[in-house]
Amino acid sequence: MRKNKRRNFREAAIRAFFFTCGILAVLVLLGIFATLLSTAIPAFREIRPSEFLLKTNWDPTSPEKAEYGILSMVVSTLMVTGGALLLAVPIGIGVAAYLSDVAHWRVREILKPVVEILAGIPSVVVGFLGIVLFGPAIAKVFHTGHGLNAANGSVLLAIMALPTIISISEDALSAVPAAYGEASLALGASRWQTLVRVKLPAGLSGIIAAGMLGMGRAIGETMTVLMATGNARSFPHGFLDSVRTMTSGIAIELGEVPYYTTHYYALFAIGLVLFVMTFLVNMAADVVLRKYQEKER
């Protein structure tokens, strides 16, 4: 009897503990969003939202007229991220296909953890590689003065997004029932045809989700792009231009901005825009994944 009571109490305590943990996580997230929102909104007392989003000049400390157009930074972010995906998605799918389809199981057992460990490399180290290795290489190949530009950022972000893309694509491909592959081979398809026409389409939603999660990883990355893309505030006209992304813009200026000024609020507004962008990407990934799971049922 007493034993029973004690057990019930423990059950309840454990349940309460986990419930608190769950609620806490949600509360913290909501808190971050609320802070971001409340600190960003005052910026629009002085800046017109359309100006903020569509003008390309960002010069909040100008002695004549402060300008708050973030379009250059938004475009830079999209360029660097898009370039990174252009590199990382094909390579990532290739590696995933190799791991799930071609590699000996022992090779896979070693390679997959190694790839996942790659995700743990600190971004400052990747940025360092960009400055001493990829940057000079890009400068040499394209005969530019220095290699601190959007292309460099794309290469580095591709490296950082690859582990996510490879790992999740590999999961998606491995989840394709073996029976599909057998059916295809038995019809006289080559392994390549089987991969391209049966396995990749069957795992497509998972692969798309992998790309989107990789994009989420790349779009919010700060330190690497701050170090390696050259920090030019001008509107980028190509991948060999130096750029400043939204993240590095915030990181550079927030340390020196006078608090509670329009400039200060505007930086939070950039953060809000970035938050909305990553939120949309993640939500799209979630929708795709869910659709995928429904189809499997």
């Binding site: 029932p177 029976a179 599909y180 081979l185 019809l187 006289g188 069957a202």
Partner: peptide
């Protein structure tokens, strides 16, 4: 590949493609 075209196979569980 050519052999499997000449010798077709039907499996234990129906395994149509998701198409």
């Amino acid at each position: 590949v050519d052999l499997r075209r000449r010798v077709g196979m039907v499996f234990q569980k129906p395994n149509p493609f998701p198409k």
